[in-house]
Design a protein around this nucleic acid. Structure first.
Lengths: 119, 119
DNA sequence: ATTATTGTATTATATCAATAATACAGTTTT
DNA sequence: AAAACTGTATTATTGATATAATACAATAAT
């Protein structure tokens, strides 16, 4: 699995975003156990402390729950995941449209550009 | 003019982005003189050194040219502005579509969401 | 029972970013 | 001529982030 960490923003923030994305899009299955902090850190080529910080953030959001000596587990709260996915999508659409609008590009042009994209 | 500086990313980067946006969308007119470093800093409620750093970045991109004792001037290179505007739009579309696709949202859904937006 | 693995906490160091407070030389402005 | 304003440079301090190197108690695995 690709961990594309750049150095333009705090690493732990990027880890939170990537982990959240994987939970919301189903890459990580609901209710299952996550790799250990150390293994995740190794996989992402990041310091364990930094990965730990990211996991703490995810626990605050309720997306994972940690059991001290067993591991971190993905939430099985289907509605939470669904809601957060919708919320994130809305946020991205809003942010994107705000920038595009500010650039003076019309809605029509925007949709044409998106139609050229591959997905 | 609104300067919405958050603390989630380096301030000088956000200043570069805002200034570039204003040049590309015509808020700042080609060939005209900018406010002084100190006045811009005051307007954005930012330290002059931070604003200066942002202006240096803009000069590297060729969007402004500084005349030592007179002030900073917006470029009058129409093609440069037009090209950078197109480039930025493409970048934003690509970034946005990448995230949306990764979230598992279809192109059709995406366009429906955009059509609900106001612009 | 012993060993390995778990999340978690602590301490230290290094770097980047932001701000503050000046300073200076060269125009403009008055 | 004097004063104000220009970009630019310097030095110092503070805070956030990243990494490193351990450590520990509790549990799981052997």
């Amino acid at each position: 699995m690709a961990w594309e960490i750049k150095n333009d923003r705090p690493v732990y923030i990027q880890l939170v975003e990537e982990l959240e994305m994987r939970i919301l899009n189903g890459t990580y299955t609901m209710g299952t156990k996550l790799l250990s902090v150390r293994d995740l850190a190794s996989e992402a080529q990041v310091n364990p402390n930094t990965m730990q910080k990211a996991l703490s953030e995810l626990e605050k959001k309720g997306l994972i729950s940690s059991r001290r000596t067993s591991g971190n587990y993905i939430t099985d709260d289907e509605k939470l995941i669904s809601d957060l996915r919708t919320e994130l999508a809305s946020f991205e659409v809003g942010t994107f449209c705000g920038k595009i609008k500010k650039l003076g590009i019309t809605k029509k042009e925007t949709i044409e550009l998106i139609n050229k994209e591959d997905f």
